[in-house]
Design a protein around this nucleic acid. Structure first.
Length: 258
DNA sequence: ATGGTAGCGCTGCTA
């Protein structure tokens, strides 16, 4: 089974690129973030034309997450259920079971600047995610928590740690929140098979960052042990960041043995 | 080169 995560930065602006990528990469399950659409405007028929079922959780203008699958979409859930959401009203989580694996697709809040209200609520959102996970799933389940985490787990996951001094995405509390998720029973599937530096999934549109190699690895797939033992390969599709109207993120693809 | 990009939606916010 081939699974992928991709922050598309507006599905309206990116639909032609997403359709082309699906046709070429042929994922079984693609989880996307930042659709920036209402549910009413989600182009489900574009995906059914390619042989995929899709479920979407959106609000319009900002955020929005979707799961696109050709191996079924069952038991769909959105948001944190009964738990209070520090970003109430923002569409940042959708979960579904596809091909026997539970997928939890997240768009973690950016946090803007350290020690602001947004940053504090980002940490609370991640703590809530851990609590929600613990109350709705077990580490022995085949599960993938994937998406745009807006946290670079290690110094080598940014192009220059010095350039990030005092900024969000690399602070100890943010990294501790990701570690806490992993402590529950998750492992970074990409790092399991690729230990190299300079592996990035996001490059800011500004300053020509992509062409200068100034990126960050903030999109990943955290998997439980039953999925980890099936991981065959993990790649970042940098080509998807090139060409006409690219997203500022590249897709991350993980191949699982059957 | 002391500014640069992109998307949303129409003024300035978000990333």
């Amino acid at each position: 089974m081939r699974i992928a995560t991709w922050n598309v930065n507006s599905l309206k602006a990116r639909l032609p690129r997403v359709e082309a990528w699906i046709a070429e990469a042929a994922p079984d399950v693609l989880c996307i973030q930042e659709t920036k659409l209402t549910d009413a405007k989600f182009p489900a028929e574009a995906f059914s034309a390619l042989g995929y079922e899709a479920v979407h959780h959106g609000q319009g203008q900002w955020n929005g997450v979707a799961i696109i699958s050709r191996v079924g979409v069952d038991d769909v859930a959105t948001g944190f259920g009964a738990l209070p959401d520090p970003y109430e009203g923002e569409a940042r989580l959708i979960a579904a079971t596809c091909g026997g694996v539970r997928f939890v697709d997240v768009y973690v809040p950016n946090g803007r600047e350290v020690d602001t209200d947004h940053y504090v609520r980002k940490l609370e959102w991640l703590a809530t995610l851990r609590e929600w996970l613990q109350s709705t799933a077990a580490p022995g389940d085949p599960l993938v928590l994937l998406g745009d985490f807006n946290v670079a787990p290690e110094d080598r996951d940014v192009w220059s740690i010095d350039a990030f001094a005092g900024l969000t995405h690399v602070t100890d509390p943010e990294r501790a929140a990701i570690s806490s998720l992993c402590d529950w029973g998750l492992t970074d599937a990409f790092r399991r098979v690729d230990d190299a530096d300079g592996r990035f999934t996001f490059w800011d549109y500004r300053n020509g960052d992509f062409h200068k190699g100034r990126g960050m690895r903030i999109d990943y797939l955290l998997v439980t042990d039953p999925v980890l033992e099936r991981v065959e390969s993990a790649t970042i599709d940098r080509d998807a960041r090139k060409g006409e109207k690219p997203s500022d993120h590249a897709p991350v693809v993980v191949e699982l043995r059957d």
